[in-house]
Amino acid sequence: MKHLLVLHKFELNREILKNKIKERLNDAKFYEDNGLILETSKDIDEILYFEEINQILPLYKDWQKLNFKTFKNNFENLNIKSYFIKVKFLSKIPISGKSIIKKVNSSLKSGKFSENPEKIIYIEFIKKQSISYYRIFIIPNNYWEKFKMLKQDSNIEIVLENPEDKEEIKDFLRLCYIFNLPLNILTNKNITNLINKAKEEAKGIPYEKFTLNINKKLDGIKIGFSINSKLDENNLKKFYSENKNNKIILIFGNEKFGLTQNLRDKLDYSFRLTKETKKPLRASHALSYVLGLID
């Protein structure tokens, strides 16, 4: 069977990788076709967790000329309980991904569309000498996303007060998305453009699933951080272990001025991070540090 190996983008030697694969799959053959194709009759799970490999995509139908009358026939006999459809254009072709997904959906006689599917139907399109071609991959979910983590609801909310820098907002967006935490930005200015620029650069975040609030009322135990606080990080860990069932709001000021006097006075607790007593952590570094402490 043929598989497209999607490799990680860090530096790697393909010849060394091929030899590593051959040690596990002794009949492995390779060729390039808009990516590295592996052909083997052995169990592909043997190489699933090679660090160089991001995804393994089993090939269902190799390149065929695009003809919509026959295109839909590829999906009529598929028996899949749940699926998700991904489309990629390797060349400019005058069709849309949405129209392809609609055609595939109408052809499938079993299964249902799902955000957490059994299989991913992945279709690539390319144009060669003015002729459009496509190939189809049917991929088990664990081959598509090897280390998918089920995100759990958290009792923690993150607040950033008066950000003045795009990079600062971008760092908080990334951290909050990674740890599945809602972000609430408090500001008395119109920073819509600043937030939008940060969103554009913080790529890979599905904002339709991400909770970002502006000036939401603070409802929970309000926690701040200062090098002048009496309570240290050991007190913070103890506090969190005793309040895991309560709503906790971690509040950070901007890089230049920290928290305003008004918000500092509303804190329920303030903690000191690290042993440094002169130079505080940057806000995003402090957030990373705190999440590591209470994880």
Rank of each mutant, 00 (worst) to 15 (best):
K42R: 12
K42Q: 14
K42D: 13
I44H: 01
E46R: 12
E46A: 15
E46Y: 11
I47Y: 02
I47D: 02
I47S: 02
L48M: 10
Y49D: 14
Y49S: 07
E52C: 09
E52Y: 03
N54R: 12
Q55K: 15
Q55F: 07
Q55S: 11
Q55Y: 04
I56F: 07
L57H: 14
L57Q: 06
L57R: 11
Y60N: 06
K61F: 08
K61W: 06
K61L: 12
D62Q: 06
D62H: 11
D62E: 12
W63V: 03
W63D: 05
Q64H: 11
L66C: 02
L66D: 00
K69I: 10
T70F: 09
T70N: 11
T70R: 10
F71W: 06
F71I: 04
F71M: 06
K72D: 05
N73M: 13
N73P: 03
N73I: 10
N74Q: 13
N74E: 15
N74F: 15
N74H: 15
F75T: 01
E76M: 13
E76Y: 12
L78I: 06
N79V: 13
N79H: 12
N79W: 05
N79A: 13
I80K: 09
I80Y: 05
I80P: 03
I80T: 10
K81Q: 15
S82W: 04
Y83R: 07
Y83V: 03
Y83M: 05
F84I: 07
I85Y: 10
I85L: 10
I85M: 09
I85D: 04
I85F: 08
I85P: 00
K88H: 14
K88C: 07
F89P: 00
F89Y: 09
L90H: 04
L90R: 07
L90F: 09
K92L: 03
K92A: 02
I93Y: 03
I93G: 01
I93A: 03
I93D: 01
P94F: 00
I95M: 06
I95K: 01
S96Y: 07
S96M: 10
G97K: 08
G97N: 09
G97H: 03
K98C: 04
K98F: 08
K98D: 08
S99R: 08
I100L: 07
I100W: 01
K102Y: 06
K102W: 02
K103N: 11
K103Y: 07
K103H: 09
V104R: 02
S107M: 10
S107F: 05
S107T: 09
